[in-house]
Amino acid sequence: MSELYIGLMSGTSVDSIDAVLVEFEGNSPLHTRVVDAIDQPISASMREAILALCAPGPSEIDRAGQLDRQLGEAFAEAVTSLLQRTSISPAEVLAIGSHGQTVRHRPPGSIAIPFSMQLGDPNTIASLTGITTVADFRRRDMVLGGQGAPLMPAFHHAAFASGCDRAVVNIGGMANITELGADGEVRGYDTGPGNALLDYWVELHRGQRFDRDGAWAASGRVHPELFERLMADPYFATEPPKSTGRENFNPGWLESAMGGLHLSPADTQATLSEVTAASIAGAVDAFAQSGELLICGGGARNLDLIQRLQRRLPTWSIADTGKYGIAGDWLEAVGFAWFARQTLHGLPSNCPTVTGASRSTILGGIYPA
């Protein structure tokens, strides 16, 4: 039976809302088809409000409460625009899966009582779209002792498991790896920074939201001492399960490491790109000696970063997830459509071998239209 779902994703890069209409058919194997997708930019004022909430500050509850509603409205607008493009009525869509916008992620080991907070009120989304909405995917896993992240490995296994060693790496604001072993085991974790600091640095020095194709990073040289200081962060040596975010890898972290050093902005960008590549490659090397590496997220379009990865992983073939039918730009949003489907079907969707939760469980709350 064919089923239509919509997936919504706004990631750590805080640049846009991805909305994807997905058709699922069958169960094992599950056939997945992207019917249509849109990328709705986040306004500069909303982006500023989101980033301000990613660190402690005054009037947090008031600011978070208002932004929760505003993001819910923005997510609903993205859904409406998507349906208008496709001429699909809300009644034909079984549910929306909305990850929400993460503003604070405090996993086990970082704080006495771990929590994760995503904004984008699902009540607002369901009411404005007329479509049942499934949201709040992380917290059940955390109640069971898990990191609440990364969540995508369960979907990566459903979509890309092949009987051979294959890794899926999402390079968003942060980067994470899914290890799909030839033995059927699924493992994964956040590897560290992805695009967040690269985007911050190019915007600070060149007024651009991102370094197109990684051209600016490619024009600089890696600064050995800054590279060593950044890679000395304890997170990289921490054994999984583990997850991270802007709470760890932020402008203050970079500026602290740069203390006393004198290097050009382009060399700093090159060094940041090398740190992202090195931390990802280290995770891939720890998984297997060779195999297939599938890339998704905004970093898949960063040619400089992909070249750095290939130099560090000469025995691995590297490709976009689009090679297997789901373009890397849309993969996470498709994943949250799948999470919504799992929830409505009463099926678990966390992966305890990834997050460290005590057991598998159904994730997400259901908000009827």
Rank of each mutant, 00 (worst) to 15 (best):
S98Y: 02
D199N: 11
R47H: 01
G11T: 08
A49F: 02
A135S: 12
V34P: 01
I306S: 03
V134L: 09
N195E: 03
L263I: 07
L204E: 12
N123W: 11
A167D: 01
M1P: 00
A327K: 03
L53G: 06
A369D: 11
D39N: 15
V168N: 04
M9V: 02
F287E: 07
R206T: 05
R69A: 13
A149Q: 02
E247W: 12
T238V: 05
P193I: 07
N195S: 04
G328P: 15
L347I: 06
T102Q: 12
N27K: 14
K323W: 05
V169P: 07
I280V: 15
E225I: 12
P241C: 11
G65F: 10
W201M: 04
S59A: 15
V222Y: 10
P150Y: 05
E332Q: 06
F287S: 02
N250D: 15
G214Y: 09
P368E: 13
A286P: 08
A340T: 09
W201R: 04
I42A: 11
G194I: 05
D136H: 14
A218G: 13
H345G: 07
A288P: 01
V34L: 02
L67V: 08
R221M: 09
S28W: 11
G120V: 00
A257S: 15
H99L: 13
Q289S: 15
P368M: 10
T80G: 10
M142E: 02
G328S: 12
S317F: 06
A270H: 13
A112N: 05
G346D: 10
I6W: 13
H105L: 07
L254I: 10
T32S: 02
T321C: 02
I362T: 15
S219F: 03
A215L: 04
T12P: 14
P240Y: 09
A286E: 14
I111D: 14
Q269V: 07
W338T: 01
E179H: 02
P108E: 12
Q269W: 11
G172D: 05
C296S: 15
G297V: 03
L226K: 10
L293F: 10
I131S: 04
A149L: 06
G297L: 03
E332V: 03
D183L: 09
P29C: 02
G214V: 07
S358L: 14
H223P: 01
A175R: 07
Q40V: 12
H105G: 08
S349E: 06
P368V: 07
Y200R: 08
G259T: 14
M142H: 00
E3W: 05
F236M: 03
P224G: 13
G207D: 08
L204T: 09
G7S: 05
A266C: 11
M258G: 10
P29D: 04
P224H: 11
Q101M: 10
I42K: 09
A52M: 05
R166C: 01
A257T: 09
P58E: 14
P58F: 09
S16Y: 06
